[in-house]
Computed example of a mutant assay.
Amino acid sequence: MLKILRIALAFIVVTIAVYSLVTGNHGLSPFMLFFLSLMMIVMGISEFKAKRQADALTCFTVSVFVLFVALYTF
């Protein structure tokens, strides 16, 4: 289930990024960053389940930073 959720979130992030690049409308960037943060949380959970705590901690740290940037740009 985590793999499907990760793929769905990655698709949302890529779709918003391509839309922003094609149209020049960067108003959706905070939403893209929010979904990217969610994707990093899901990746951290899957890494934690695979007993790779260092990678999980890195994913969670990046997620917190990206979420902070997303909230700051709103």
Rank of each mutant, 00 (worst) to 15 (best):
Val69Glu: 11
Val18Glu: 14
Met43Asn: 04
Ile12Phe: 03
Val22Ile: 12
Ser37Ala: 15
Tyr19Thr: 12
Thr58Ser: 04
Thr73Cys: 10
Met40Asn: 06
Leu36Gly: 12
Gly27Tyr: 12
Ser63Tyr: 10
Lys51Arg: 15
Ala10Asp: 00
Ile7Phe: 00
Thr73Arg: 10
Leu21Pro: 11
Ile4Pro: 01
Thr23Ile: 15
Phe34Cys: 11
Met32Ala: 15
Gln53Asn: 05
Glu47Phe: 04
Phe60Asn: 07
Ile4Leu: 05
Tyr19Lys: 15
Arg6Val: 00
Leu28Phe: 13
Pro30Tyr: 13
Ile41Phe: 04
Cys59Thr: 02
Ser63Arg: 06
Leu57Glu: 08
Ser37Asp: 14
Ser63Thr: 13
Val22Gln: 11
Met40Trp: 05
Ala10Asn: 03
Gly27Lys: 04
Phe48Asp: 06
Val62Asn: 04
Asn25Leu: 10
Val64His: 05
Met40Thr: 08
Leu9Ala: 03
Ile7Met: 01
Ala50Ile: 03
Ser29Gln: 14
Thr58Phe: 04
Ser20Trp: 06
Ser29Phe: 15
Ala50Asn: 12
Phe35Leu: 07
Gly27Glu: 14
Val66His: 09
Glu47His: 11
Ile4Gly: 02
Phe34Tyr: 12
Val64Asp: 06
Thr15Ser: 15
Leu28Thr: 09
Val13Thr: 02
Val22His: 12
Met1Gln: 06
Met39Gln: 06
Phe11Thr: 01
Thr58Val: 11
Leu38Ser: 10
Phe74Met: 08
Leu21Gly: 15
Arg6Trp: 00
Gly24Arg: 03
Thr15Arg: 05
Met43Val: 07
Phe34Thr: 13
Arg52Asn: 08
Ile41His: 05
Gly44Glu: 05
Val62Cys: 13
Ala10Glu: 01
Phe74Ala: 09
Asp55Tyr: 06
Ala8Lys: 02
Val22Ser: 11
Phe74Asp: 04
Leu57Met: 09
Thr61Tyr: 09
Thr61Leu: 12
Ser63Phe: 08
Phe65Ala: 15
Ser20Leu: 14
Ser37His: 12
Leu33Gly: 05
Phe34Ser: 07
